[in-house]
Design a protein around this nucleic acid. Sequence first.
DNA 1: TCAATACTTAAGAATATGCTTGACTATTGG
DNA 2: CCAATAGTCAAGCATATTCTTAAGTATTGA
Lengths: 121, 121
Amino acid sequence: MLDQSPQLDRLFHALSDPTRRAVLDRLTRGPASVSELAAPFSATLASVVQHVQVLEASGLIATEKIGRTRTCRLSADAVARAERWLSERRKLWEARFDRLGALLEAEAPPNKNAAKRKRTS
Amino acid sequence: MLDQSPQLDRLFHALSDPTRRAVLDRLTRGPASVSELAAPFSATLASVVQHVQVLEASGLIATEKIGRTRTCRLSADAVARAERWLSERRKLWEARFDRLGALLEAEAPPNKNAAKRKRTS
DNA sequence: TCAATACTTAAGAATATGCTTGACTATTGG
DNA sequence: CCAATAGTCAAGCATATTCTTAAGTATTGA
């Protein structure tokens, strides 16, 4: 299994900002230029350009510059990737929960091998 | 529709760190104490405590202190909430993509009302 | 050609994050 | 009681993030 950490880092970090999520929301209604994305916000164009760069680096959107305008569009792939990561964990957890059952769960003895050291470097 | 921005901020921010995601992974295998969570990492206990606090504030995990040990467990609800947010956007996007079709999509004229000002405050 | 448009880049300031060390508190086993 | 255990808290530090302003580039329409 390859290490997809940096990619997931960028993906979830990109999603953690409300302005960027609003940009994604706008893009679900279709492609838009950077200026169009900036219009609804109390933000300078430069600021929105930076958000767009973060979104593009995360893979959540793709952009294409034609003439002097840059058109941005959502990339369903990256959204699906983040969704899948979450889905896998939720399913694992729910499967485990189902196996044990609520009653047994309530009295399950905690794992016994505690950490012996402060660091593991 | 209530503003769930701060909650989603915390949720995705919590997911954006590899150590925290590893902690979540560990917790899909069952509850664990803070020391047990710290054991696999090159991190001090204090550092892991801080990550646990971030995860708890995001709602992704719940913790309970019994005696001197704090037991952490995954909260499927929050995971499902993040998953749902992504799923909604992906579906919107895919639905739109399907409606237009790949061919029409390739020549769809971009939205015409461009931004006229730098700020909207 | 020339001014407006649509970014783009750079630099700086304010704030947030993540990590470390060190001190401190609460429990627990002997 | 006492030492070890499991965490907790508070600083401090380095880096990252986000926003702003200002200046610069590439296109486009008249």
